[in-house]
Design a protein around this nucleic acid. Structure first.
Length: 600
RNA sequence: CGGGGAGUGGCGCAGUGGUAGCGCACCAGCUUUGGGUGCUGGAGGUCGGGGGUUCGAAUCCCCCCUCCCCGACCA
């Protein structure tokens, strides 16, 4: 491609609405342009990257035995009513009416359509298993589109659906996809990690999310430094018999005396002033005027945050409940929801507190008379006594002893895992990192096959629902994730496999360089190399800056100085390494390097 | 949905009642010729939309729309 003809305008200034590097650079480099909030046009350079990612996805999906098809984007809403996801998605779905006023939606995913499609065609055990996929645009009317391509309302997604006879078959299908995903993300040049995930609206049981490690990611995930445990923070756990306060002792800088010894789980060692629970002091009310935060209370009373009890009020099934966690920890709301499932849980908000004067916000304690359900993190039982709210405005109580002064109706892991917590499987230290969710694999089961009638008849003539799995990859999101990982202050630095071109051939000003570059352009293309030729009538500085911004992995600079010595300069964009190639060897050397890179 | 902010030429921005400006980009020319060169000239804007106040509105008032940020939410 000749840059003089390429539909491209690079920007010298950063777009004002771009917050993250991928968004900023993709716009500056002329890869994408915003059309509406969360909706982008893919200009030629961006389109080329997208196609290369798609190609990798298709190759690996095909290799894993999946078959490509194309499903509609506009889907009848009644299909979604049959699965119940019409209401589950709610306003997240774009909806539209045709001229006959029938309702449609723009597909956010395609379980309903694929399941009804398979149900219509297949009915025998002889037909299964089958795995079908598509690469198609998806729509989600996000509350808040953000970060350019990372949270868009229109995005390109590969979605695959497997149909098996039974759970064993599903395991095999799932495993094949799990392995294919590793190859796909590796080929795209991403540093990633599969983690146990939350099911979300899709439903189902076992699932993994593939996280591209990135500071701008919207998901926190936990991983163990010594074993292979890894999970989205929403579902992450810590070792249940963990010594209370271990995490705060290391991460919050508490003195050693604050640490708990797992062999002595009772409170006596935690606080020199604490007494043995057996003979613990009675609860003692303390005047704490206006001190509603943990930090204020601990500062005022001279205790560690880990010695305070956080009581969070919630409503579940019409009942008032309290979630109890140590004061130095944050509540994992997903964990609370899981603990009370299927009853929906809602933390009380400002309006609720205003309506319930008996609940003095900031001063709530675990022994509140109105509370009908107390759910406590296991660590709450591990400490002999606590500082807690007194259920009276401007008052706290100390020497609150679990079992004596309050009790939990239920124990469940409720705290959000932080770096330093013990791994649930091996006990070693966990770390928390941020990631971009670029893919997810689910074991769905029979939810959709039952709702939409995807059954098969077995050898004995009995009917069974097909056992399904579904597997997504955010193709457009992968593009952004790759830029997040592969860029520097000058611009993008694409991994060869997904770069818009293989080689950026830069002709320096002058007639001789132009002619030499022209010749190389033809020779390289004859070797199958995809070349971007900068044949523009522009200054050298402009060309160099654009080449670094666009980020094609190899730059070949043809200039008068080099030509006088019979050489062309080569620069590797990612590393900045430069060397010189004799003019006569350029084509063979570059083609060979690309060939070996493609194999590796 | 709650809170905050912004809409002025393709991009980035200035302009607080008196005839719309700057930088970049774009066009023409000169200059320059290995890291966004310097100069000259030029084209390009119903100042988000509607209503109002005023002799006069980008500017003040009202309504609406769009976009961005924080939060809630999240294949």
């Amino acid at each position: 491609m000749r840059m003089s003809r390429l539909f491209l305008r690079t920007l010298r200034d950063d777009p004002s609405d771009a917050e993250v590097d991928s968004h900023r650079l993709l716009v500056r480099g002329g890869f994408i342009r915003k059309v509406a909030s969360g909706i982008y046009s893919w200009l030629p350079l961006g389109s080329r990257v997208l196609r290369r990612v798609e190609r990798i996805v298709r190759e690996e999906m095909d290799a894993a035995g999946a078959q490509e098809l194309v499903l509609p984007i506009a889907q009848p809403l009644d299909l979604w009513e049959r699965s119940g996801r019409d209401t589950a998605y709610g306003p997240l779905m774009f909806r539209l009416q045709d001229r006959k006023e029938s309702w449609f939606c723009l597909s956010p995913t395609a379980e309903e359509v694929i399941t009804s499609t398979v149900a219509a065609e297949y009915s025998s055990y002889r037909d299964l298993p089958v795995n079908l996929y598509q690469v198609n645009w998806k729509y989600r009317d996000e509350l808040r589109p953000r970060f350019g391509l990372l949270r868009a309302r229109e995005f390109l997604m590969k979605d695959a659906y497997s149909f098996d006879l039974d759970a064993d078959g599903l395991q095999a299908s799932y495993r094949a996809m799990y392995d294919a995903y590793h190859r796909i993300f590796e080929r795209c040049g991403l540093t990633f990690r599969p983690v146990e995930g939350e099911a979300g609206e899709i439903g189902g049981d076992v699932n993994h999310e593939f996280m591209a490690v990135a500071a701008v990611g919207e998901d926190d995930f936990v991983w163990c430094r010594s074993c292979d445990y890894a999970a989205n923070v929403e579902v992450a756990r810590r070792r249940v018999d963990a010594p209370v306060g271990a995490a705060s002792g290391t991460s919050a800088g508490a003195p050693d005396s604050e640490r708990w010894d797992s062999s002595r789980r009772m409170a006596s060692v935690s606080d020199p002033s604490a007494e043995d629970p057996a003979g613990a002091s009675a609860m003692e009310e303390v005047f704490t005027p206006g001190l509603t935060s943990i930090a204020e209370v601990t500062g005022f009373l001279g205790v560690e945050p880990s010695a305070t009890l956080k009581s969070l009020a919630f409503e579940a099934g019409g009942r008032l409940g309290l979630a109890l966690i140590p004061g130095d920890r944050e509540l994992n709301e997903f964990a609370l929801s899981r603990a009370l499932a299927p009853t929906p849980v809602r933390l009380l908000d400002d309006a609720d507190f205003a309506a319930r004067p008996s609940l003095p916000r900031g001063f709530i304690g675990p022994h509140h008379p109105d509370v009908e359900l107390v759910v406590a993190d296991p660590s709450v039982a591990g400490r002999g006594e606590w500082v807690a709210g007194a259920n009276r405005a401007d008052h706290h109580v100390r020497h609150v002893v679990p079992g004596r002064d309050f009790r939990a109706d239920r124990f469940a892991e409720l705290v959000t895992i932080v770096t330093g917590d013990p791994c649930p499987s091996c006990g070693a230290e966990l770390s928390v990192d941020r990631g971009i969710e670029v893919g997810q694999v689910f074991q769905l089961g029979t939810k959709y096959s039952e709702a939409l009638g995807a059954h098969y008849t077995d050898e004995a003539g009995e009917k069974h629902p097909m056992v399904m799995g579904c597997y997504g990859i955010g193709v457009s999101r992968v593009v952004a994730a790759v830029v997040e990982e592969h860029h520097d202050e000058h611009g993008m630095a694409w991994p060869a496999a997904v770069a818009p071109f293989d080689v950026h051939l830069v002709a320096m000003p002058g007639e001789e360089p132009a002619a030499a570059a022209e010749a190389l352009y033809h020779e390289l293309r004859a070797e199958g190399v995809e070349v971007l030729l900068d044949d523009r009538d522009a200054r050298a500085g402009v060309k160099f800056a654009d080449a670094d911004l666009i980020g094609v992995p190899v730059q070949l600079v043809v200039g008068a100085k080099g030509l006088a010595r019979g050489v062309v300069e080569r620069k590797v964009r990612a590393t900045g390494e430069r060397d010189e190639l004799p003019l006569g060897e350029v084509v063979a050397t570059v083609a060979a390097a690309l060939g070996s890179a493609a194999q590796g």
